[in-house]
Amino acid sequence: MIALDRYPYFPMLRTRQAELKGLEHLRPEQKQAMLPMLTLGRWPKATDFSKGAEKAAQVMAGAPYCLDLTQDLTHLPDVQQRLRSPQHGFKAWRDFVKDWPQALPVLQTHPEASLRDWLQQARGLEQQAGQVAFRITDFEHHPPLVIQALSAMDDPARAIVFIDAQFIRAALPTYVQATLLTINHLRSAFPNLLIVVSSTSFPASVLPFADPTQSAGTIDILERELHARIGGHAVVGYGDHGSIHSVVYDESSAMRWAARVDYPGELSWEFARSPKDHSRQGYIIAAQAIAASDPSLGTRGLWGEDMILQAAQGHPHGVAPVSWIAVRVNLHLARQLSLSQRLLQAIDQTDDDE
């Protein structure tokens, strides 16, 4: 059994190449210190979701994680619908996750599922995996279902509940209120329930945050503000989407783009870009701007920082957005893990002093 409450950070990532590469290049102790949720999606040239699940397990290298299935029907729709079928208590999903014993399975939802199938899934996954995860994305309909499933389990302490507010930048106060109501609803039934609040504020485009030259800018990380407004680590665990926007445009290869290097901090993302340039030289110039902005770059033993320095010296590791998304994800995960660890340590010290 995993001590779920020991983790300071619970990022949500998809099994896309860039996101998994950023995760893969964390140090082993960093992977062991967080509990990510990895959502299966389409892998290049894959005809099912097994390759994505295999890559997720490989990247985590024995460390625990939660395993979910995309609800986006653009990803292998026939297979996705079979795995999410509610028949016989979501048996297809329960059978699928048996092959990945280090993963905590996330319960699947379906609009045509009966209450019996939903509860059978919860009990079956608890018996099969020992521990389970829930993901709330619908603040109205999901919480009552989760409470009913927890009531049907042998031990609700074997569950972790993720409240996924998704993209919050458009209406932060509304999401704060909705998240608080959901937390109170769940805790009224299970006061000691382990709850994680996750969200993302990374935009679909960085241009609204760029300076007049469109060559640099700063984006504030609202995930931290949401978490702080609902009480911080003293109330719920912290999660985010790993610096990824909530909607991914996988068919965007023909879209116009400029060379850009992102540099995540604890409370903001910095970026440098070469407007109208997506050449190798454009990435070198962007990386040089980032390197010049932080003399401590490269001192923390982080793969992403090494890649920025390497590019600043004239040798970019990639000349396409996917390579630099991986760098951003890697640095974001490392920075947010470190911040969460310090915030939890401060709470523990305060408790010891009382």
Rank of each mutant, 00 (worst) to 15 (best):
L267Q: 10
G89F: 01
V59C: 10
P101F: 00
S323H: 15
D48F: 00
M34N: 05
R328N: 07
I244T: 09
L302M: 09
L73C: 09
L119I: 01
V196R: 11
T109C: 13
H233C: 10
V329W: 02
L23G: 06
Q214V: 04
V97C: 07
M1G: 13
V106G: 07
G89H: 01
H88S: 15
Q313L: 09
V206M: 15
T109G: 10
R342A: 12
V59H: 09
G282E: 09
R84V: 11
D306S: 14
G318R: 03
R6S: 15
I285K: 12
R14F: 04
P105A: 04
H317C: 15
P44E: 03
R260L: 05
L23T: 04
P143C: 06
D353A: 12
L297C: 08
A61S: 10
T39L: 02
P212I: 02
P208F: 00
F96M: 06
A113C: 02
G231E: 04
A216W: 12
R14W: 06
A311M: 09
L115S: 15
E225R: 12
H332D: 05
L40S: 03
F167M: 04
G265R: 06
A234S: 14
G301N: 02
Q58A: 11
A178M: 11
T109A: 15
W100F: 13
S215T: 04
S296A: 13
I168D: 06
Q166K: 07
T15Y: 11
I308K: 02
D353T: 15
I136M: 01
Q17K: 14
A170S: 12
S205Y: 14
W324T: 00
